[in-house]
Write a protein that binds this DNA or RNA. Structure first.
Lengths: 209, 209
DNA sequence: CGCGTGTTTGATAGCAATCAAGTTCTGTGG
DNA sequence: CCACAGAACTTGATTGCTATCAAACACGCG
């Protein structure tokens, strides 16, 4: 799994000079909940999901991570979420200590602060969605986010309906119904249950915003 | 959710040497949404509420801040939330630049990282609550948090029902009903609508966890 | 082809939102 | 100190959205 140290310009991708490329098969765990958080990961390809279990067994998805995203930032010393590969994927992993050694403390701190800040903003936006939005609005926003992430005509959803449901605080049936509804209304067009195209971005944005 | 940053001896309370004491009357705004985020605040007395408006006018409360909490940490340069005093209150305000000058860059960065980390953890916990919990569970947890914050026999709620509702993603009527229900069940005892005592902490914890 | 998994669709139930009065609290002025 | 008005809170009746329960349908794989 520890294949090679990727040689890349450090100015652009700080992970390259301090990290190790790792590959994970679909379904494999990058790290577990409550495990010490030592490594930071930058996703290179594929998609990763973070999740945590509530005391009553219900699951909350923290987020979905795509190439370029930094993963492994956690509040405190231990991972509050588990991370699992949704597709086969590769990531550059770097211990915090090595980042500091290679980049200098200041740059390493800046890197971590930026990642933490981005995660925080994401969490805040998610709070707003869960606190204020209807099922239809949540799904609309989710699909739009996925589309914006991939900037491709045909958007691929690497996660299943259950993952979407747990992310949005809904049930799998409701997610499915809302997708059907958006489809019927002509806002999106699902070619298969995991791929779609955006048909009416304006209406979708109006719903999700 | 309402995790306090532990009060610390003044040697480690950097605000004292870099900040200015400010007082705010009840209802006064510490800062507005979308305003540049320059100052960090440490609450000394009173209670502050952060909130933001969604595009459709619905309001989300970010959190409630008590003495010892650091406020003003935001993702990016501008405040994503507005902050308003719920009671008359005092806070020590310090510009980030001054903190760095007085404490040294490293200590200032650590201070900010710690506050950011705490806020992030709070937001994550809040996501879990909004995504997974019922109205009754949310209110139970909220009351328990408030009680833990104040560590007093009689707990005072500085915020109104509407604030609680917007924080928990519920309506004011539902919050009121759940409080009545917890009261009837003997888990809490409201002496006035803003003060209560915890009667059955175990049951309350079981509900809220 | 059959099986298992994942998704969609349908029927029903239940929780929380909404709509609508009351009731209590609070602050203000007589 | 009391009276009053307005705000905040509680309670009640009803609606509606989403969860739940149940079954059918698609798809991938041995």
């Amino acid at each position: 799994m520890l294949t090679a140290i990727a040689p890349q310009p450090s100015a652009v991708r700080p992970f390259a000079c301090a990290g190790v490329v790792m590959t994970f098969a679909r379904g494999e765990e990058l790290y577990a909940q409550a495990e010490p958080a030592d490594l930071l990961y930058e996703i290179v390809s594929g998609c990763v999901r973070t999740s945590r279990l509530a005391a009553d067994g219900r699951r909350q998805i923290g987020g979905f991570y795509y190439p370029g995203d930094v993963l492994g930032i956690e509040a405190g010393g231990d991972h509050r979420f588990a991370a699992e590969a949704l597709t086969d994927c590769t990531a550059v992993a770097a211990p915090r200590s090595r980042l500091a050694a290679r980049l200098g403390v200041e740059a390493a701190v800046r890197l971590e602060t930026e990642a933490l800040t981005a995660e925080f903003a994401r969490a805040q936006d998610h709070v707003l969605v869960l606190g204020c939005k209807t099922a239809c609005e949540r799904v609309a926003r989710f699909l739009l986010d996925a589309a914006d992430r991939q900037c491709a005509a045909v958007v691929d959803l690497p996660m299943g309906r259950q993952d979407i449901a747990d992310f949005l605080g809904l049930t799998i049936e409701t997610v499915s119904r809302m997708i059907t509804q958006l489809q019927t209304a002509g806002l999106v067009d699902f070619t298969t249950c995991r791929t779609f195209t955006v048909r009416d971005r304006v209406a979708l944005t109006r719903l999700g915003a």
